[in-house]
Design a protein around this nucleic acid. Structure first.
Length: 420
RNA sequence: GGAGGGUUGGCAGAGCGGACGAUUGCACCGGUCUUGAAAACCGGCGUGCCUCACGGCACCGAGGGUUCGAAUCCCUCACCCUCCGCCA
């Protein structure tokens, strides 16, 4: 949710910032009018309640003979308060509904443009060349029996996979490798709940916006997280944090569940886009003045993780037209996949400034002043399935084996994968 | 799954229909005293919303109800604790 006070005090600035995201002025005008109506009603309700409270107080102090008259008079006030309260509740509901549709103000440094028009800031690693036709990850993994897509389809349907043998070992190695790097940078490893209540989904902004992406349990009111960002962000929901404890840095490892509704026919091959995958996610709660720097920090960790795996990738500054609702700025890492001859997203990190914190009510104590909202940031340290794809495709050899990057060898316990 | 007990400000813990947004202690902040500190004493000290301000309103786990009036009574739900059952 955006800052309503800023919208009130400087509507032109808010409108200009959101115009970059393609938001017309109508929605904002509507929200401002709803805000005015809401505030007017709050004043009316407060005044009516004050009147009623005073009347009730007098009854308590009154003698028995005048009591009944006062009670009768106070009864009339009761109805008036109730009517105004109903009106206010309706106005607030409408206001909240419209407010929820307004995305975060983009960072002034975020580039203009739509999806696919990101700015490549830099590349790292060397783009591999092959003296043979490179295979894609499905050919490589299936030949080594490191993945079983056929049986996963039988058991669970499309977009599921069994990781087996060295495929499974790769996950353990990659996860521990990424967590070690995250820990060196001050992130506490966390295994979070993957089933969460509605409040956590709303607080993090995945509901109602992304309802179609979320799996929900039938008999219990649980939602499966699409990323551990949800459970990590909601950890400090409704809290007032001690500034001395900031920044709070976590590295969550969890499975992630996504319905991928609307992605029919897209990336149907292999394990690039699946309903269930595992991910090590970085999450930070920071002082509002520190979030830009923290964003760069998180991006640097992501680059360290993938350059350490000798993977060639590019860093993309995502344009405002392709930002999620809560992000002010976003950087993606896109690894080159020889099997597709294309750069594909393997990580993503966003600064959501106070947008997510406002919904979560995650604040910071300010001595001698009003408490302020913290800033929240999230980023992928390592998405297992996509990291496996990049790794095996880029490090494959003519015989279908894969060289293991030096830094991963201690975690995997071998130098070559898929040797027969 | 069954039975019982709980949920109050940073923490502990009173309050059980009317002057309670809440006694008190600890913690914390300021002051007096002191060479300095401790102790003692004095004062302050929850959050949010509305208002230029004075001030007002809301919040005692969440939601609903009874009442002129609810932290206090009733209902529903969530969570925590104890015991029994089950279980990795």
């Amino acid at each position: 949710m955006i800052d309503l006070r800023l919208l009130r005090d400087d509507p032109d600035r808010v409108a200009a910032a959101l115009a970059r995201r393609g938001l017309g002025p109508d929605d904002l005008d509507r929200l401002r009018h709803l805000d005015e109506r809401r505030r007017a009603l709050i004043s009316e309700v407060d005044a009516a309640r004050a009147e009623q409270k005073a009347a009730s107080k007098r009854i308590g102090q009154a003698g028995p003979e005048e009591r009944q008259g006062l009670i009768d008079a106070a009864s009339e006030l009761k109805a008036k308060v109730a009517a105004l309260e109903d009106e206010l509740a309706a106005a607030e509901q409408e206001h909240a509904r419209v407010a929820a549709t307004i995305p975060n103000l983009p960072d002034p440094d975020a580039p203009d443009g739509e999806e696919g028009e990101g700015v490549v800031l830099r590349t790292f690693g060397t783009k591999p060349t092959f003296g043979f036709t490179p295979r894609d990850h499905v050919e490589l993994l299936e030949a080594a029996d490191a993945v079983d897509l056929q049986r996963a389809a039988k058991v669970s349907g499309a977009r599921f996979a069994y990781l087996k043998g060295e495929g499974a070992l790769l996950e353990f190695a990659l996860v521990r490798y990424a967590i070690d790097i995250a820990m060196e940078h001050g992130h506490t490893p966390v295994i979070p709940p993957v089933l969460v209540r509605e409040a956590a989904m709303y607080g993090t902004g995945f509901l109602p916006t992304d309802a179609q992406q979320i799996f929900t349990t039938r008999d219990d009111e649980f939602h499966l997280i699409g990323t551990s960002e949800v459970s990590l962000a909601a950890m400090h929901m409704d809290e007032v944090l001690d500034p001395d404890d900031l920044p709070l840095r976590y590295a969550g490892y969890s499975p992630c569940f996504r319905r991928e509704a609307g992605a029919h026919g897209k990336d149907t091959r292999g394990i690039l886009r699946v309903h269930q995958f595992e991910k090590v996610e970085l999450f930070s709660f920071t002082h509002p003045d520190a979030s830009r720097e923290e964003h760069e920090r998180i991006l640097a960790i992501e680059e360290e993780v993938f350059s350490g795996l000798d993977i060639h990738a590019q860093v993309v500054d995502i344009p405002v037209g392709d930002l999620g609702a809560s992000a002010a700025r976003k950087f993606d890492l896109e690894a080159w996949l020889p099997g597709q001859d294309a750069y594909r997203e393997i990580t993503s990190c966003s600064n959501t400034t106070d947008y997510q914190a406002r919904r979560l009510k995650a604040r910071m104590r300010v001595v001698g002043g009003d408490n302020v909202l913290v800033h929240t940031l999230n980023g992928t340290a390592l998405a297992v399935q996509r990291a496996i794809i990049a790794l095996v495709e880029q490090h494959q050899r003519a015989d279908g084996t894969v060289t293991v990057p030096d830094k991963l060898q201690p975690y995997l316990g071998r130098e070559i994968l898929f040797a027969r």
